[in-house]
């Protein structure tokens, strides 16, 4: 270890703030380490809770591991060769990395919205109906129609698309596509929604729509969102986690993190001194 590393480790040290929540958390990470190809560690000893019906914002400079941690929460990292996750991640007090949890079932409970809107090259209806059909969540077609309408309504897209459900989902605007992806995710009725920079590819107006939507969805779902916009984190989240070089530096209620950060690195980041 050279001097820089020692200094950095001293600086990063233990997570400050308040990683645990009162009561039973919806999801909970305990001492999670993530390795890519054995020699490259992406996440170091992260412990953090996701409280029910709250939004946890994950912020930090590029490459700090926030997306990696997010993808651990529904085991999307399983698809990456050489990715090893140690430690424990619980969903409703059940360790999702034990062998008796099927990742397919887990992903039905923990949905995901991606950075780039990625609707299937199918009709709007089929996009939303894909998940329910996959898991057989309906018994007949009218029930499926109801699920589609409900999901699109929740995602604030029903009014715009009810007359063009058979048109391709890829023909929508970027913001509409992202809302379609959210509708597609909530059609499976998950417990948790993970969002990986959901607005980074959108213009300010579409971003505002999605933020409002996230605020409304909070009442029914638990949400974890990775974002590069500190304003967004401040606006929408209940709790905020700041990551740096694979370490969780600070996590606390959002207003505390933004008004009175405990850690020097957090302060530097939110005041725009780096990142």
């Amino acid at each position: 270890m050279n001097n820089n590393d020692i200094e950095l480790n001293q600086q990063l040290g233990k997570t400050v703030g308040n990683p645990l929540v009162d009561g039973i958390p919806r999801m909970s990470c305990q001492s999670v380490d993530v390795f890519y190809n054995q020699d490259l560690q992406a996440i170091f000893n992260v412990s953090v809770d996701l409280a029910k019906n709250q939004i946890l914002a994950m912020i930090g400079p590029s490459g700090c591991g926030k997306s990696t941690l997010l993808r651990c929460l529904n085991r999307m990292n399983d698809t990456i060769d050489g990715c090893i996750v140690t430690g424990k991640i619980y969903l409703d007090n059940e360790d999702i990395y034990t062998s008796n949890i099927d990742p397919v079932l887990l992903r039905a409970k923990v949905g995901m919205v991606f950075q780039k809107p990625n609707p299937f090259p199918k009709s709007i209806y089929d996009n939303v109906a894909y998940g329910p059909r996959l898991h057989g969540l309906m018994t007949n077609n009218s029930e499926l129609d109801d699920i589609v309408e409900e999901s699109l309504t929740k995602a604030g897209l029903w009014k715009e698309t009810k007359d063009r459900l058979n048109k391709p989902g890829t023909g929508l605007s970027g913001g509409q596509q992202q809302r379609l992806c959210i509708a597609r995710t909530i059609a499976v009725k998950p417990e948790v929604i993970l969002m990986d920079e959901p607005t980074s590819a959108l213009d300010p107006i579409a971003t505002a729509t999605i933020e409002e939507l996230m605020y409304e969805l909070k009442s029914s779902y638990t949400i974890a969102v990775v974002t590069h916009s500190m304003q967004q984190a401040a606006r929408i989240s209940d709790r905020c986690a700041y990551f740096h070089l694979g370490r969780l530096v600070e996590v606390n209620d959002t207003n505390i993190v933004f008004t009175n950060p405990e850690h020097g690195l957090t302060e530097n980041y939110i005041t725009g001194r780096f990142g």
Partner: peptide, 27 residues
Amino acid sequence: VPPSIREAALGLGASKIQVITHHVLPL
């Protein structure tokens, strides 16, 4: 086939073979 399509299907809880038969092969 764009990886985003695979991720979308996986994220909804499709199994690997469903991702292949529903999305990868048609595309």
